[in-house]
Amino acid sequence: MIRVRFWGTRGSIASPGRATQRYGGNTPCVEVVGFQMGEPGAAVRSDNPHLILDGGTGLATLQTTLMSGPWGRGQGELHLLLSHYHWDHLIGIPFFRPMFVKGNRIVFYGSSIEDLRSSIERLFTSVYSPLKGAENVAADLKYRQVEPDGMDVAGFQVRAAENRHLGTALSFRLQYGAHVVCYTPDHESGDREVDAKLVALARGAQLWILEAQYTAEERRGRDSWGHNSHLQAVRLALEAGVGMVVLFHHDPAHDDGILDRMGLEASEMAAGTRTQVLMARDGMVVDVE
């Protein structure tokens, strides 16, 4: 099975506070772990397939767990897939404690080595960071380019496709045994060709984590802002026929009440189909088995 843990589910910028406390306000970070049958419940061992999708502020809540394991002793290896280089998907990285332990190895994956490297380096430059340069990060940092047609990452078979967003943003399809999880942050439906590619990527997935930042009313005035409404997201999920769609990348202006309402509308739209709809929350765990 694959265990998916949502550490950050908010888009654009972290939005902590009373009004968002049920869904959470940390920006995108999703942890994915593969388990053999009968294994779940155990702590993540170093030989479990294990990767992280995006490095938003959710990384900060994930790090506590990691630091109590091999990453705290400088014996950890972490694979971090970055969908794109907007800050909400990166801004947890300069504060991520496993980076400050010598011996740890962190492998970043992105659409281009050059953009990947310059993004990570910019996070640590002296104007923005007290570390005064990525060369002062204790962990060993590696950069890899995503191979869209298939590559092995930490025990997962990974494929990728390009979203419709500002600049290059990727969706990832992760397979472990018979189980498939698809991840699409930051996508604006409407380009038939792009939508068809994403639907093809997600087809057969048990779980699609899919961007749904706006309400239908908000979406109407925001062509080319690069995001879906919740209803557009459900439409894509129904087309792909996935088992479950988790709506994700919530707008920072949306309080818990608005997200409740969006969840209801999205579920109504999928009623009577084989696709289950769930609103992402920080801390939520979904087991794909």
Binding site: R10, A14, S15, P16, G17, R18, T20, Q21, G24, G25, N26, T57, A60, T61, I91, G92, P94, F95, D282
Partner: peptide, 16 residues
């Protein structure tokens, strides 16, 4: 300080 954080046990003082 340092980075924003959204945790339920921090809403009194806030995470911004």
């Amino acid at each position: 300080g340092s980075y924003p954080i959204a945790r339920r046990d921090q809403v009194r003082y806030g995470g911004n």
